[in-house]
Every structure is written in structure tokens, then in C-alpha cells.
């Protein structure tokens, strides 16, 4: 299990995170939700080991992150960042290959090539292999980066660490409505198949409702609540986290909740004809 225990982080005299705890179980999906500036990405970066906390610590299967070397850490967790800018354009295959840089010399050139091909195929990226990365669409770029992350956590090695974790920092940012859903579906499905624990920062309540096992709600750097999705995705938590009212119905197709947020409060339903039809 990946665990953050009572993380506190101050920047410029302000508490960005205050005694926040979070856990990610192998093979499960934990989602962090909250308003802009609530500290979601900061928490994710702390748990990735990119940011040091002022108090509290992050543990990977019982070991503190500080005890792990960068090489060891890179084999146990991979991070999909919000956005990428390349210094120089390189090909999709070259980007994906970076996933195995941590164990570069334990492979032969042929093995590396095969691995890259395997992961390109896994994410339907083979036709793009030799395209320059910046020429791809946002959704395609995200898939390339996911391929890189999954290769980084490839379990083929004999001495592969037992539990591995995939951290997704706003994976749906800049994707269209269909791509958002597809991408999270794909990432969580592949991660579950491989027994990877997933930690994701998400904004869409319905996507979270569908893919998260557990949700951590953050507000102004503090925990609102954390627990199983089914128990927590209710009007009370959403109001306490986002200051918005919402409608929760049974989803006509998926059998889960269907959440409609009402940004200007419940009163708007009665005052405008367009929302009346929704209600």
C-alpha cells in the first residue's frame, strides 16, 4: 500500500496541505477531488516523491520514500504529469522507450525494441511510432505518456517490486468529453489488470463515481473526508467540498449515481425554464 500520513506542507507561510492522509491499495483506484487550489496536485507530487513535506511522511509498502533511491523509486511508481513540453521534438517510440531508462542496461537493444513495440501495441499507438511527439493530438499524447508509465512499471523483470503504483495528475485535463472518459477507463483497466495501485486527481464527479474505489475530498489543503466511493459521493460531501448543490439520480445505463452539479444553487432549478426540464 502507498500511504501518506499526516502530510503538512507550507509554502510562503501558507499551509498548502495540513495533516492530510491518503492511501492507495494495489489494484485499486484512489481519486483526489477538490476545488482548484485545494492542494490535490501538491499531494500527488508529495506522494510521488517530487516534493518533500514539512511534516508527515509517505510510505511505500511500509518503507519511507526517503529511504528509497531515485532508481528504486522509479521502478515502484510512475507519474503521468498534467502536461509536457519537449525541448526538441522526438518520436513517439523514443518517448515510450524512456519508460525503461531506469533499467536500461539490464536489457539488450533487441529486448528494449520489443518492449517498446509491446507497449505501443497495448495502447494502439503503433501507427504513430515514428511520428514526432508534438504533432500528436492531446489525447494521443496522453496515451503515449501512459505507455511510457506502464513500461516503467513493467513486471517482466524477475526482481520486479511486488507492488507498483501509477499516479495520474489530472489525466483528463485538455481532453474532450469522450477522450476524458475513454482515457480514465483505459488507464484504470490496464492498471487493474496489472495489479497497479492508481492515484488520480480528477475533476469530473461522474468519472470518479464510475472508476474510483476510494475518494479523498480536499478543501483548502485539509481533508474533508476519505473513504469508499459509494459511501461518500453524496450531496453533503459534494457541498462541503465544492460549495455546490447537486442532483443525484440513478444512472440509467451504468447502475451507479448520475451527478448533475448546480453551480448557482438549488434555487436556479425553479427560476429558469431550461433547468426545470433537467429537474
Amino acid at each position: 500500500m502507498m500511504q501518506a500520513r499526516n502530510i503538512t506542507l507550507r509554502l510562503g507561510g501558507r499551509d498548502i496541505l495540513k495533516e492530510v492522509s491518503c492511501r492507495v491499495r494495489p489494484g485499486r483506484v484512489t481519486v483526489i477531488m477538490g476545488k482548484n487550489g485545494a492542494g490535490k496536485s501538491t499531494l500527488l507530487n508529495c506522494m510521488a516523491g517530487s516534493l518533500g513535506a514539512d511534516a508527515g511522511a509517505v510510505y511505500l509498502d511500509g518503507q519511507s520514500l526517503q529511504e528509497l533511491s531515485p532508481e528504486e523509486l522509479s521502478r515502484r511508481r510512475a507519474v503521468l504529469a498534467q502536461s509536457y513540453s519537449l525541448g526538441f521534438p522526438i518520436s513517439v517510440a523514443e518517448v515510450v522507450e524512456m519508460g525503461c531508462y531506469g533499467r536500461y542496461y539490464s536489457y539488450t537493444a533487441r529486448e528494449r525494441k520489443n518492449l517498446v513495440r509491446e507497449y505501443l501495441q497495448l495502447l494502439d499507438l503503433e501507427p504513430f511510432a515514428h511520428r514526432a511527439f508534438p504533432t500528436l493530438s492531446g489525447g494521443e499524447q496522453k496515451r503515449v505518456m501512459l505507455a511510457k508509465c506502464l513500461l516503467q512499471l513493467d513486471e517482466g523483470q524477475e526482481d520486479a517490486p511486488k507492488h507498483r503504483y501509477l499516479l495520474l495528475d489530472e489525466p483528463t485535463a485538455a481532453l474532450d468529453v469522450e477522450q476524458q472518459f475513454r482515457f480514465v477507463d483505459l488507464a484504470t483497466k490496464l492498471a487493474r489488470q496489472r495489479g497497479l495501485g492508481v492515484l488520480a486527481v480528477l475533476h469530473d464527479l461522474n468519472i470518479a463515481a464510475r472508476f474510483a474505489d476510494e475518494i479523498l475530498f480536499l478543501r483548502e489543503g485539509q481533508t474533508v473526508t476519505m473513504g469508499p466511493t459509494k459511501e461518500l459521493l453524496n450531496k453533503k460531501t459534494i457541498k462541503a467540498t465544492f460549495d455546490v448543490d447537486c442532483l443525484i439520480q440513478d444512472h440509467p445505463y451504468f447502475g451507479g449515481p448520475l451527478i448533475t452539479t448546480l453551480p448557482y444553487g438549488a434555487s436556479i432549478i425553479r427560476s429558469t425554464p431550461t433547468t426545470e426540464s433537467v429537474a
Binding site: 510512475a78 507519474v79 504529469a81 509536457y84 525541448g87 526538441f88 531508462y101
Partner: peptide
């Protein structure tokens, strides 16, 4: 090429 932060996450 992906940035220093990325390089760090890859174990460098």
C-alpha cells in the same frame, strides 16, 4: 527533453 522533473521521476 521532457523536463528535469520528468527525468527525476524516471530515476535520474
Amino acid at each position: 527533453l521532457l523536463g528535469e522533473k520528468e527525468a527525476e521521476k524516471l530515476g535520474f
